[in-house]
Computed example of a mutant assay.
Amino acid sequence: MHLSLHTDYGLRLLMRLTLAEPGAWIATPIVAQRFGISVHHLQKIAQALVRAGVIEARQGRSGGVRLARDPQEIRLGRLVAELEGIGTVVDCRRDPCPLISRCRLKWAFDAAEQAFFLELDRLTLADVASGTTAAALRSLFRAEPGDGGAPPAAPVPSDPTPGN
C-alpha cells in the first residue's frame, strides 16, 4: 500500500504537534519550512485534520495549530484511514469495471486494507513520535523566535523498535 503525500505530511505535522509544549500554538509556515513542503499544502492538510477533530486551529498573529486530543488517545490506524479514506487500494468506480459486483479481487484488497488499519491501530500517535523520532524532531525544530513552542529538551527514552 502506498500512502499519499497528504497522509505523509499530515502525520509529520501531527508528530511535531505531539512534542509541542502543552497548549502551545504551532505556526504551520514554520513546520512547512522545516519539512521542506508547501505552506499552502500543509494548511489544507491542517484544515482536514481540524474537520477530523484531531487538531485545533486559530488564526492571527498568535495563532497556529495544536492537538485537540491527547496523542496517547489517537490511534494510528484510524488516523491513517481518516487521511487516506477507506476503500482506496483499488477504486473500481474510477474506470468502471464489468466485474465490480462479482469481483473477489476487490474484496481481497479491501480485507487487506482493513488488516493494515487494524495493525496500525496497535500504535498511537504518541508511540510513533517517541524515541529516535522524537530526537530527530527536536533537532529539526530547535527553538527559534516565532516557533510557537519548541519541543522540550527532555531526555529521549530508548526506543526498542528498530528503524524508529
Rank of each mutant, 00 (worst) to 15 (best):
L3K: 10
L3D: 11
L13M: 14
L13I: 00
L14N: 08
R16F: 04
R16W: 04
T18E: 03
W25S: 02
A27G: 07
P29V: 03
I37D: 02
S38Y: 01
H40S: 12
H41I: 08
L42C: 10
L42M: 15
L42D: 07
A46G: 09
A46P: 00
V50P: 03
A52L: 13
A52D: 08
V54S: 00
V54T: 11
V54P: 00
Q59T: 08
R61E: 15
G64F: 05
G64Q: 07
R66N: 06
R66C: 08
A68W: 00
R69W: 01
D70K: 02
D70G: 06
L76C: 01
L79S: 03
A81H: 04
E82W: 01
E82S: 14
E84G: 04
G85E: 01
G87N: 08
T88N: 13
V89T: 07
V89R: 10
V90S: 06
R93Q: 09
R94G: 00
C97G: 04
C97H: 00
S101P: 00
S101D: 11
R102D: 10
C103R: 00
R104T: 09
D110R: 09
Q114V: 12
A115V: 12
F116M: 14
F116S: 09
F117V: 03
L118V: 14
L125K: 06
L125Y: 09
L125Q: 07
A126F: 07
V128W: 10
S130P: 01
T133K: 11
A134D: 04
A134G: 12
A135E: 13
R138C: 02
L140S: 11
R142P: 10
E144T: 13
P145Q: 02
G146R: 13
G148R: 03
P151S: 06
S158M: 04
S158V: 08
D159T: 07
P162C: 06
N164H: 15
